[in-house]
Simulated assay, not measured.
Amino acid sequence: MIVIPMAGRSQRFFDAGYTLPKFMLPLGGESVFAHAVGSFAAYFASQVFMFIVAPDEDIIDFVAEEADRIGIENWRILPVDRPTAGQAETVEIGLDKGNIPDDAPITIFNIDTFRPGFEFPGAWFAGLDGWLEVFEGEGANWSYVRPAEGDLPLAAETAEKRRISNLCCTGLYHFARAGDFRAALAAERLAPQAAELYVAPLYNHLIGRGGKTGYSLIDPADVIFCGTPQEYQALLTPA
Rank of each mutant, 00 (worst) to 15 (best):
T19C: 10
L20E: 10
P21W: 02
P21F: 02
F23H: 02
L25V: 07
L25C: 07
L25K: 05
L25T: 04
L27Q: 08
G28W: 05
G28P: 03
G28I: 07
E30K: 15
F33M: 04
A34H: 03
A34M: 05
H35V: 09
H35T: 08
H35N: 07
H35Y: 06
A36N: 04
G38E: 01
F40G: 02
A41V: 08
F44I: 07
F44S: 03
A45Y: 10
A45E: 15
S46H: 08
S46N: 09
S46G: 09
Q47K: 09
F49R: 00
F49Y: 01
F51K: 02
F51C: 07
I52Y: 01
I52K: 01
A54P: 04
D56C: 10
D56N: 15
D56W: 10
D56G: 08
E57L: 12
D58G: 14
D58Q: 15
D58E: 15
I59G: 00
I59K: 03
I59Q: 06
I60Q: 12
I60D: 08
D61Y: 12
D61G: 13
D61V: 13
F62R: 04
F62A: 05
F62N: 03
V63R: 04
A64R: 12
A64G: 11
E65N: 14
E66L: 04
A67H: 02
D68N: 14
I70G: 01
G71E: 11
G71W: 09
G71L: 09
E73M: 14
N74R: 15
R76S: 11
R76W: 10
R76C: 09
R76Q: 14
R76F: 11
I77Y: 07
V80T: 11
D81S: 13
D81F: 13
D81Y: 13
P83I: 08
T84R: 09
G86D: 07
Q87F: 10
Q87N: 11
Q87D: 09
E89T: 05
T90Y: 04
V91L: 06
E92S: 10
E92F: 11
I93W: 13
G94K: 01
G94M: 04
G94L: 04
D96L: 15
K97C: 12
K97E: 15
K97R: 15
N99I: 11
D102R: 11
A104L: 13
P105Q: 05
P105G: 05
I106W: 00
I108V: 13
F109P: 01
F109D: 00
D112R: 06
T113R: 04
F114Y: 15
R115Y: 13
P116G: 08
G117R: 03
G117I: 03
A123C: 13
A126G: 14
A126F: 13
D129G: 05
G130H: 00
G130W: 00
E136G: 08
G139I: 09
N141M: 15
N141Q: 14
W142N: 05
W142L: 06
S143Q: 12
S143F: 08
Y144N: 02
Y144A: 01
R146A: 12
R146V: 07
R146D: 09
P147R: 03
A148C: 08
A148R: 05
D151E: 15
D151M: 12
P153E: 00
L154T: 01
L154Y: 00
L154C: 06
A155K: 01
A155C: 11
E157V: 12
T158D: 04
T158L: 12
T158H: 03
T158K: 03
A159H: 01
A159F: 02
E160G: 07
